[in-house]
Write a protein that binds this DNA or RNA. Structure first.
Lengths: 179, 179
DNA sequence: CCGCTCATGTAACTGGTTACATGATTTA
DNA sequence: TAAATCATGTAACCAGTTACATGAGCGG
C-alpha cells in the first residue's frame, strides 16, 4: 500500500462531499458549490467533470451506472483509497500551504489607495463599505441556510465566512479612521 | 480613445507597483511579493515575465533599456494608458468579483471535520491553533516591516492581514467551544 | 574565488474558464 | 407546452507552476 497522493483543495472537497453526502452524481457536486459566498469553487462543468475523472482514474472515486427514469446518470462513491486520501487531505498534519492569509482583492487594492485622487478615494471607501454590507447580508443568509442538526460542521464553516466578513468591516473602519 | 481593458489582479498589482515605486525592473516586481503572508502572489518568473510582456503589448507598460555596470536590464514605467487602466482596476466602481468572502483552505477543511474520528479531530483543531499562532507572528512582523511615513497605504493593507488572522483565531475559538 | 543577489528569460505541463452540445425530467 | 432543472460531457483557450538556463555584480 503506497502513501496517499496529495490532492488539490478542489479534489479534496469533491472527495469530502461524496463521503459526507453519500453516493451522488457529479451534477450534485456542482450544485453543492452554488450559493457559497466564496468565488473559489465555481461549479463549472469544465472544472468538475475533469476533476471527477481524475479521481476515478486515481482509484479514489468509484462510479456505478444508474438511471432516473430513462435518464442515465453515474453515482459516485468513495473507495477505501479515497477515504484514506480524504483523511490525509484534511489532516493532521494540515498542509502548510493552507495557513497563508486568505487572499482578499480589496486588501490588494487598498495597497494602492494612494494612487487615487482624494475625491475618488472617498468614493472608493464608500464603495467598499456598501459592497461589504451587501456581502454581510449574503453571508448571514448563507449561515442561516445550514441546519445545525443535520450539518453542524457546515454551519461552523459558514460561521467562518461571517467572522471573515466582520474582520473586513472592522478593517475598513480602521482605514477610514486613519485616512 | 477606447475604454480601458479589464485586467486581472496580478496585472493590476504590477501596474500599481510600477506606478507607486517608480521605474523599476521586472525583478524588483518579483521581490515585492516576497515576504507577503498571502500565497496568492508567487513571484515566480514564469508568472511575472509573461504578465509584464502582456502589459507591454497592451501598451500599459513601457520599457527602456538600462544598464547596471555591464549588466543589461529593462526599466518599466507606466504609460498614460496604463495609469488609466490602473485607476479603472482600483475603482470605483470596484469589480463585483472582488467582494466574495476570501477563500480560506482551513474553513474548507472544517466543513468536513465530521469525517474525522474524535481523536484526530482534537489533533486537527490543535494543529489549526498552532498554525494560526505561527501565522499571526509572521503577519505581525509583516505589518511592522512597513514604514508608516513612507508607505502608509501599505501598512493599512497589511493591517488587513492582521484583522483576517484575528478573525480566524476567533472563529477557531468558537468552533472549539461548540465541538 | 565562492556564494549570494541582481537580472532575464523559456518550455513543458497542468488545470481552470468559457462556450458549445445534447437530451431527459419536472413544474408552472 | 414552455421553461427550469437534472444530467453529462467536450474543445479551444489562457494563465500559472516547476524546472531549466544563463550571466553580471558584489561582499567576504
Amino acid at each position: 500500500m503506497s502513501a496517499p497522493q496529495p490532492v488539490s483543495d478542489l479534489e479534496g472537497v469533491l472527495l469530502g462531499i461524496v463521503g459526507k453526502f453519500g453516493p451522488c452524481t457529479a451534477y450534485a457536486l456542482r450544485k453543492h458549490f452554488e450559493g457559497s459566498p466564496t468565488r473559489f469553487f465555481t461549479s463549472s462543468t469544465g472544472a468538475i467533470y475533469p476533476a471527477v475523472r481524475r479521481l476515478e482514474r486515481a482509484g479514489l472515486l468509484a462510479s456505478r451506472a444508474d438511471r432516473r427514469g430513462r435518464q442515465r446518470r453515474r453515482l459516485l462513491q468513495l473507495t477505501p483509497g479515497g477515504e484514506a486520501v480524504l483523511q490525509a487531505w484534511l489532516g493532521p498534519p494540515v498542509d502548510e500551504g493552507a495557513f497563508g492569509t486568505p487572499y482578499d482583492p480589496l486588501r490588494t487594492r487598498m495597497y494602492f489607495v494612494g494612487a487615487l485622487p482624494a475625491r475618488r478615494r472617498q468614493a472608493f471607501l464608500d464603495a467598499l463599505r456598501r459592497g461589504l454590507e451587501r456581502q454581510l447580508a449574503q453571508v448571514e443568509a448563507y449561515v442561516a441556510s445550514f441546519d445545525p442538526e443535520s450539518n453542524p460542521a457546515g454551519r461552523l464553516a459558514a460561521r467562518g465566512c461571517l467572522h471573515a466578513t466582520w474582520a473586513q468591516l472592522r478593517w475598513l473602519d480602521e482605514v477610514a479612521r486613519e485616512l
